[in-house]
Design a protein around this nucleic acid. Structure first.
Lengths: 158, 158
DNA sequence: GTCGATGCAAACGTTTTGCACACTG
DNA sequence: CAGTGTGCAAAACGTTTGCATCGAC
């Protein structure tokens, strides 16, 4: 019952693999941790800590939001999870193996996953002119998606 | 006593011009607003609301942080000011006329102003492959600056 | 039994809001 | 003198932390 496709080589590809890694690092395989991981491996990326908490609480109602935050932090230290900021508002979390940038629409809030290759031009320019090596994954690039641009173009012609 | 150079055409280039615009929009030219504008037109970009409050309070100690926020919001609606998020932590405010992107170092926190042209490659790629029109000004692109890369490269060769 | 993880409540830093009063035009 | 702006206090928001207890190994 796993969505264990499209994951990067070397990264743990299932809940139990991650829990083994957790144990190896001196951690424990607790119930909340297991359920949280199930939710992270399940369909649908870009979930906030609060959304994950609600999903976990459907199975184990007593799991507290602070436990979610602590587990996400731990999983992030282990390299299993990353968070990204898609605009104003809470951070979103996803498996580190699903690696991509984010484009976030300022008008409708929609988020597009952008293949990292999209950033090659910027990476090259920043590297050669400023010596700066970008990491386009952690913060979204804002802008306007195709649908909103179309709508706004029409509205603007008044 | 104005740093009224390098400003984009059409934008108000001094405190009194902005206040005239404020009045035209039904607002009032209050003392706090004038002092805040003086600080925004002064040297040094990327100031947080709290930093601006401290600067204003050196002249008018009773000006409250909430007044700063309300004035920044108003000035932003008028198109005089913009804010940008350079990483975690508070937003920074600057004159909308000073238009550039931001590259922010995850290691040392330094922020580089990036000419918008640096983003042309990404803009082109996002537009043609996804129909997405980026606006690179509002959120910084994170990464690692030249100095930190050099330091980390050495540390990594253990 | 040891030590890491949890629930809860309380704090945090940043920003927003409700209200009565003060000031601008 | 109408109505915008202000100071202050308190709330809102996402996140972190202190502490006593619980549970994994």
């Amino acid at each position: 019952m796993g969505v264990e496709s499209h994951l990067v080589a070397g990264a743990p590809s299932g809940v139990e693999e991650v829990l083994a890694r957790v144990r190896k690092a001196g951690g424990r395989a607790t119930t909340s941790r297991r359920i949280l991981l199930e939710r992270l491996f399940a369909e649908g990326s870009h979930k906030t800590a609060e959304e994950l908490a609600h999903e976990v609480q459907r199975v184990a109602p007593d799991v507290h939001l602070s436990t979610i935050y602590r587990n996400l932090e731990e999983l992030e230290r282990l390299g299993v999870v990353t968070h990204a900021h898609l605009g104003h508002g809470p951070a979103t979390y996803h498996l580190a193996a699903e690696t991509h940038g984010h484009l976030s629409c300022e008008s409708c809030g929609a988020t597009l996953e952008a293949p990292l290759g999209l950033f090659d031009g910027l990476a090259e320019a920043a590297r050669t002119t400023l010596g700066f090596e970008i990491d386009p994954r952690h913060f979204a690039v804002l802008g306007h998606c195709a649908a909103c641009r179309a709508r706004e173009a029409v509205a603007g012609e008044v």
